[in-house]
Amino acid sequence: MTLTPEIIAILMLDALFLFFALIAFVLSLRILFKWDIRSTQPLQYALEKQSYLVSVIIKYIFVLKLPLFLFYIFTCNKLSNIITGAMCASGVVNSVDFGLYLMVFKIINLYLFGFWLLLNNADMKDELSPFVRMKFLFFVIAFIPLLLEIILEISFFASLNISKIVSCCGTLFSLTSASYLSLLFKVDSSLLVGLFYFFGLMVLLGYILKNIPVFIFANLMYVLFSLIALIVFFSTYVYELPTHHCPFCLLQQEYYGVGYLLYISLFVGTFYGFCGGILEMVTHKGHTKFFKISLFFNAFYLGLVSLYPVAYYLKNGVWL
């Protein structure tokens, strides 16, 4: 175990999150079982007050989680300096067996907590508070991945071994790798890229047709295939190197940190598309503003990522 200042900061905030999330969890359970909007008992009155506390706590956690996620990646990047063999964050993340799951949970939690806030906002605007039970049930469920994430994160940093030799991203993201990632490279890349553009179009189609289920589904597939296409195809054009497929090196200074822009726009785009869509299904109210934001950021990501191969072709006259 190494305790660098960055790790201590992350662990400390994890401890804070755990403490507050536990409070919110207990309160949510109480509200979930005892809530009765028509009751005039003191209990109901107290519960209404407590629901504010829960929403404040969740806002606090979410607002900190966003920058903390970037900070976590930055920490992994920095740790790659001292871990033998690692050249960027991916080596560090994969140095522990469950590093990738931790990453996945982190991303899922961002979506979940963001959705909770959207739901909360919709609930607060309505004077009848029709979604109280739903949002607290949702938090009770979302608490489990949060707990898992914190546990995984603590054990991740605890089991990080600086003297162990890890693989660098060059071998992790290649055909020779033993992991399931290598399966991706066996599939024809033009198929994956085609699917990426296909789902991009489907998002647009869903927006034009105002068909919410299509829109949600398209967004879900879009985020999946944009990541795959990024690893398999687009990243090579960013690095201008046909063998380099790492999604983490994009975040480094050599490539002007373009990864931050890419990932943030992808997250914002699909978050509003996905969560806004579900919100509309739940509340039966139009949220076209969310869809517009979603469309804009998804298109921005698609344009930016497509620009790299085009620019490469214009400069060199060949494809990679």
Binding site: T4, I8, N81
Partner: peptide, 15 residues
């Protein structure tokens, strides 16, 4: 690497 370790350790200890 050993420099980074030493100073991360020292500031970590203080932290």
């Amino acid at each position: 690497v050993s420099y980074q370790n030493i100073f991360d350790y020292k500031s970590g200890f203080f932290l």
